[in-house]
Design a protein around this nucleic acid. Sequence first.
DNA 1: TCCTTATGTACAA
DNA 2: TGTACCTAAGGAC
Length: 276
Amino acid sequence: MPEGHTIHRLAQDYTAAFARTAVHVTSPQGKFADSAALLDGTVLTTADAHGKHLFLGFGTAEHAADSPAWVHIHLGLFGKVAFGPAPAPPPTDTVRLRLVNDTAYVDLRGPTTCALITDPEKQAIHDRLGPDPLRPDADPEAAHRRISRSRTTVAALLMDQKVIAGVGNVYRAEVLFRHGIDPYRPGKDLTRAEWDAIWQDLTALMREGVRNNRIDTVRPEHTPEAMGRPPRVDDHGGEVYVYRRANQPCHLCGSPVRTADLAARNLFWCPTCQRR
DNA sequence: TCCTTATGTACAA
DNA sequence: TGTACCTAAGGAC
C-alpha cells in the first residue's frame, strides 16, 4: 500500500473522520500506550503528510492548536490503516494505535514508526526530506539540482527520499517506463526536459493515486480495451506497465519485462522501450 | 501449517 | 552490502 499517495490520502481520511473532535486514543498492543494516555480525550486538530510520513496534530493542554503535539507515523513496508464506523469492534492484539470518536474508529497496525514528537522534531523531518510532488510548497528545482550532479542511477535517485519524497517502487518503475528511460542511466545524464516531464507526470499520477487510493499508470490509449486485449487487474489492485510483471510481455512491444535487484528492491523495466 | 513476499527505512560493518 | 524490524496474504504442501 504505502507510497506517498497513500499517506496523503490517509491525512485526508483522518481529517474527515476525526478533525475538531475529542478522540479516545488507545494502544491495544501496548507499544504506544504511554503516549496514547497523554493524548486520550484531546482534540485532533490537523493531519499533514510529507512523502511517506504522516503527522497527526493534537491540541493538548500543553500544546495549543497553533503548536500541536504530533504523532509521527511511518507505515514502512507492512504498516496498514483501517477505518470503520462506530462502535469500534474489540481490537486485535496487533493494533498499535486506535482513535475513536462518536462516529468512527481507525486502527493502525505494523508501522515502522509511531511516535509522539514536538513541532521542532517535525520540522527536522521536513528538512531532511526532498520535495514531495503532492505538496503545494514543493520545489522541483531542489530535486533537479541533486539529480543533475549525481552519477547514481536515476532508479536509485527516485527512491531516495532526500532527493524526492513520496516515490516508491511502483511509481519509480512506472514513471521510468512512461518516459522511456533506462533505470540504470546516471542522474546527471537526464536532460532538463526529461526531468521536467518526470516531475510533472509524477504530480499528475500521484494526485490521481490520492483520489482513487490506488496506483494506475497505463495511458488511456494503452488500456486492454483500447488495444483489443482481455481486461486485467494487476496484483496490487491497479493497472501498470511493468511493476511486478517480470518475464511477462511488455504491453507495448512484447519484449519480456526484465527484473533485477537494485539496493535490495526489485526493479522492473522493459529493455526495449527504455533506452540509455 | 509452513514458506515467501511485499508499494520501506535505519543502522552496522 | 547485509540485516533487523513490523504484519498479513497467498501459495505450496
